[in-house]
């Protein structure tokens, strides 16, 4: 089995300079290896640092210590220490992230938001994926700012899945979805795993988690230090 993502001794704390330099340790000594075709679910109580870990894996948050190795074009790249341009390239080709909420760009229609993320910019593929996620054609030409929470999340999922990244990070991909749409997302995750995509996700819904996750990584809350 090929390791796609490997985390060694990851540390992350937040220093709040506007609160007198208050230090909040969140992650300590986190280790994780995810192979191709595997889905690891992050578990633990709210506030334990699951989202912080997921964002660190995407290099959205900066690691204070440790390594985050990503298999990018055949080599392991440490995105915790890589220069910004390397991170941009790793994100473009290798590492996809589906956030919980869509950050909408003014004026850009849903179809273009998804097509822009496709490697070949294909509008046909974007339309097909939106249809699969039950976003009807009449909405494709509209910017998603006025869409419902569930519709926005599905546009976001289409945008995340169309890139064909070998590693996907999913933050609550079914949080705003009804059961029928959640089933579609579960099917998409299952198909991605079958293609060899390595997935790390946060799934609050136990049923969804049981159906997609091969393993759990427990994230335990650290004691706050003053």
């Amino acid at each position: 089995m090929v390791p796609m993502l490997q985390v060694d001794s990851l540390e992350k704390q937040f220093t709040l300079h506007l609160r007198g330099g208050l230090s909040l340790p969140v992650l300590h000594g986190v280790n994780l290896t995810v192979h191709a075709g595997e889905c690891v679910a992050l578990s633990g109580p709210s506030g334990a640092g699951k989202s912080t870990l997921l964002r660190s894996l995407y290099a959205n948050y900066r690691a204070d210590a440790g390594r985050i190795l990503i298999r990018h074009e055949g080599e392991m790249v440490d995105i915790a220490s890589a220069p910004p341009r390397t991170v941009v390239q790793v994100r473009a080709k290798t590492l996809g992230y589906v956030s919980q909420f869509l950050r909408v760009v003014p004026r850009v229609p849903a179809l273009d938001i998804v097509a822009e993320a496709a490697p070949d910019r294909s509008q046909e593929k974007a339309a097909a994926l939106l249809h699969r996620l039950n976003i009807p054609t009449r909405l494709h030409a509209l910017p998603p700012a006025t869409f419902s929470g569930g519709e926005q999340q599905r546009v976001n999922l289409a945008r995340g899945f169309i890139g064909g990244h070998p590693i996907l990070l999913l933050d609550e991909p079914t949080a705003s979805l009804d059961a029928a749409n959640a089933d579609i997302v579960i099917a998409m995750i299952t198909e991605a795993k079958a293609r060899g995509v390595a997935i790390v996700g946060i799934f609050h819904d136990a049923e969804v988690r049981n159906r997609v996750a091969d393993r759990l990584l427990h994230v335990a809350p650290l004691q706050d230090a003053a």
């Binding site: 937040f14 220093t15 709040l16 300079h17 506007l18 964002r55 290099a59 959205n60 948050y61 900066r62 910004p84 991170v87 941009v88």
Partner: peptide, 21 residues
Amino acid sequence: TGLTDQVLDDPQHAYTQLLVS
């Protein structure tokens, strides 16, 4: 200095934290 989303979502310097907040 850094990636845009990194600097805005996880600002390290006191002044950047002030700007973002």
